[in-house]
Design a protein around this nucleic acid. Structure first.
Length: 620
DNA sequence: GCCGTTTTCGGCCCGACTGTTTTCAGTCG
């Protein structure tokens, strides 16, 4: 785990412990905010904290970090622990914080369960329900206990957070189903799925309906859909259900994953919200989030004498507590997101950027000095014109060279790179030097069979544990493109990993550093190198850092993309094609790139044919 | 615990929903 992630985890725990011990709630939320700021920060904060020229001052320049939290970060950087946190942990049973995972249990209830019914963890909670001692807790009635019991069962069955790919597939299916209902104008996934986060907790689907008849029909279509396991709530404007989700991937049946069977039968919560066109934009903005972005938006509205909610942007009337939409007040904006942002003197913020990571400042129509640079043309899926990382039947793909090239052409690409595995990737049937020589000839031969697309002879060459490449330079020099990737020794020490990856970046024949850390989302943390050193070297040596678009990888991850973009690096977005459907994962790679504020001009896959091939040749 | 171009003290986003109550507390997104 990177030190930022480890620090963020501790601050998050700090926040939870403060909540549960009944500390000032604003103090708790300050710690939670700091945890987020730390997790999102693109550079290593421990290094920053230890810098001789005023680490504390630098930390305090980060929004959400004040003097006290800066002290805690410095302490963590020096000692690997935070004394105040350890003291707080000693006061609270170790299993209590896990109860936050149960829907419906918040800080107040968990504290009461602990203090009044002696609950210390999930097992003792179940016991207190069984023996009735839970009824000692104030405001605890029969229905409340039933709800907690149901929530415990759902938590056990729920997949927890789900990777972007399976979540998007389920959302697409639900949307197609609901759109077939007469009177449904639009259905769109909001929430973290729309923002392109690498994992999502639930699905939020917004449905724009023509009238109340369509409203009822759409709700009915949803709750009776195949795969709906249980309906949790069903109102006029909102329905909630647990829905089966297929979590399988090509990683699941490999030796890497013994848990495939355990994951079958998982469910995810799906909320649908039904509304008419006049409020659709406000609802879409509201339910897309993030929560932090929404807080800033509402504050911005208040600063302008307005109030923002899921029904629109309204004139603010602080003396009257009745919500404006209930009084028939005409909204200033609400039909589209664009008009809401415009009314707040902002350009429309793409969903992937709505994380309160500087977008509030840089998307102001007249941004001030010193704010983050706003992308001139944030990368879009239509900008991608080349796939530079693809496998064939020569190693572990299912397509021949010609089939691969035809599929790439069909998708509108001007260039496809054939980059089969190198000899050390034995499980993936990596090519020996002799086989690679023959494969290069086969690629050249395929060029006459598929016209209208440039087929590159390349390799995804292993970066060995010491940073050496898996083929000698003579052979690498015969290739049009070299993608160098780590596949083994993914748990090595950060300092050694940094040296290993730097050596690959500095190699004069390497174009792209493939899936730089080797992490798998929710499966394997991967390497933990000093990322800033990689950015600097990649920039200096004109090497592109890859965003591997497969939803199991998304490596570089969003915050690393942001760091690389800030450092001025080239970025590649590749689908690591093994199967024709892998081209469809491009959307996730592009979303990750957008979350890192990538401009089209820095993406090698978005270059014109001329520019791309000039860059490739510059390394030959 | 953070923050501030009306504030260095006194704020800190908003509404729906639920279940417990007799006017509200807690959770969620």
């Amino acid at each position: 785990m990177s030190s930022n992630a480890a620090l963020a985890e501790r601050l998050e725990l700090f926040s939870r412990l403060l909540e549960v011990t009944g500390a000032d709630s604003f103090r708790a939320s300050a710690h939670a905010r700091a945890a987020r700021a730390v997790a999102d920060w693109p550079a290593d904060l421990c290094a920053m904290a230890l810098s001789p020229d005023g680490g504390k001052a630098a930390l305090q320049s980060i929004a959400g970090i004040g003097p006290k939290l800066a002290d805690k970060i410095v302490e963590f950087a020096k000692t690997g622990a935070i004394k105040e946190l350890e003291e707080l942990k000693a006061q609270v049973p170790a299993g209590l914080i896990a109860l936050f995972e149960i829907s419906g249990l918040g800080p107040k209830t968990i504290r009461a369960l602990w203090q009044d019914a002696g609950v210390t963890d999930l097992d003792s909670l179940k016991k207190s329900i069984a023996d009735g001692s839970i009824m000692k807790v104030p405001r605890m009635g029969e229905k409340a206990v039933q709800k907690i019991s149901a929530a415990i069962a759902i938590a056990a069955q729920s997949a927890g957070r789900v990777r972007l790919g399976p979540a998007a597939a389920l959302a697409d299916a639900i949307i197609a189903h609901i759109k077939s209902v007469k009177g449904v104008r639009e259905a769109i996934a909001a929430g973290s799925l729309r923002r392109g986060k690498e994992t999502v907790g639930d699905l939020d689907i917004l449905i724009c309906i023509e009238n109340s008849k369509a409203q009822a029909a759409a709700a009915e279509a949803f709750v009776t859909m195949p795969g709906v396991r249980a309906v949790l709530a069903r109102g006029e404007n909102r329905c909630s259900a647990q829905v089966n989700i297929d979590l399988s991937s090509r990683w699941e049946d490999s030796s890497e994953s013994p848990s495939a069977a355990a994951q079958s039968g998982s469910t995810i919560q799906v909320d649908i919200r039904l509304m008419e066109e006049a409020v659709f934009g406000a609802a879409l903005a509201y339910f897309t989030g993030s929560k932090e972005h929404n807080v800033r938006m509402r504050q911005r509205a208040l600063d302008r004498g307005l109030t923002l909610n899921e029904y629109g942007l309204f004139p603010n009337t602080p003396d009257d507590p009745t919500p404006p939409q209930q009084k028939g007040v005409k909204p200033v904006a609400g039909k589209s997101e664009q008009e809401i942002y415009a009314a707040l003197d902002m350009a429309w913020v793409p969903p992937e950027l709505r994380e309160d990571r500087g977008e509030m400042e840089s998307f102001e129509l007249k941004p001030g000095k010193g704010v983050a640079h706003r992308p001139k043309h944030l990368i879009e899926i239509g900008d991608i014109k080349a796939e530079l990382h693809a496998h064939t039947t020569a190693s572990d793909g299912v397509l021949s060279i010609v089939e691969l090239a035809r599929e790439a052409k069909r998708r509108g690409f001007h260039t496809i790179a054939v980059t089969d595995h190198s000899r050390s990737s034995v499980i993936a049937n990596g090519l020996s030097p002799d086989r690679l020589e023959k494969h290069i000839k086969a690629v050249h031969a395929a060029r006459s069979e598929v016209e209208g697309i440039t087929i590159l002879a390349g390799s995804e060459v292993d970066i060995l544990s010491d940073g050496a490449l898996d083929y000698d330079d003579d052979l690498l020099g015969k290739l049009d493109i070299v993608v160098a990737s780590p596949h083994a020794a993914l748990t090595q020490d950060p300092a050694i990993a940094t040296k290993r990856l730097l050596k690959a970046i500095e190699h004069p024949l390497v174009h792209i550093l493939g899936h730089p850390t080797g992490r798998l989302v929710m499966r394997r943390p991967g390497l933990d190198p000093a990322m800033e050193e990689l950015y600097a070297a990649a920039k200096q040596h004109n090497v592109a850092l890859e965003i591997n678009a497969h939803w199991m990888r998304l490596d570089l991850r969003d915050v690393h993309v942001r760091g690389a973009v800030n450092a001025g690096c080239l970025i590649a977005i590749d689908c690591d094609v093994h199967h024709p459907s892998d081209f469809d994962t491009l959307r996730f790679g592009v979303q990750t790139a957008r979350r890192g504020w990538l401009d089209r001009s820095s993406c090698v896959n978005a270059m014109s044919h001329t520019d791309l091939h000039a860059w490739l040749k510059s390394k030959r």
